[in-house]
């Protein structure tokens, strides 16, 4: 998943709770994929997944619905 990322920044910009930020790490194509900076804030709304034009990220709600997160940070 991380290899699909082209660092457009849509997920970072439009995350309603600002969970993500572009990291300083590179993927093999030289892009900076996002990483989770505020995991406790993630609501699992999957808006990042809706926006991601490269199908490289998605969000989900954990079933044992503690007010928890679960953005499997680009894989």
């Amino acid at each position: 998943m991380v290899e699909r990322c082209k660092a457009c920044g849509f997920c970072v910009e439009f995350c309603p709770t600002k969970v993500l930020a572009l990291s300083s790490a590179f993927n093999s194509k030289g892009y900076h994929p996002p990483h989770v900076v505020n995991p406790e804030k993630c609501s699992g709304c999957d808006l990042c997944g809706m926006y991601c034009p490269d199908f490289a990220i998605y969000g989900y709600k954990l079933p044992n619905a503690a007010p928890q997160k679960g953005v499997p940070d680009e894989g």
């Binding site: 699909r4 660092a7 809706m50 926006y51 991601c52 034009p53 490269d54 199908f55």
Partner: peptide
């Protein structure tokens, strides 16, 4: 067939999600 050829910042992938 991934990754696709659409440019970084192109919106076509987003429409496919929808």
């Amino acid at each position: 067939r991934m990754p696709h050829i659409w440019c970084p910042g192109c919106g076509i992938g987003t429409t496919v999600n929808c």
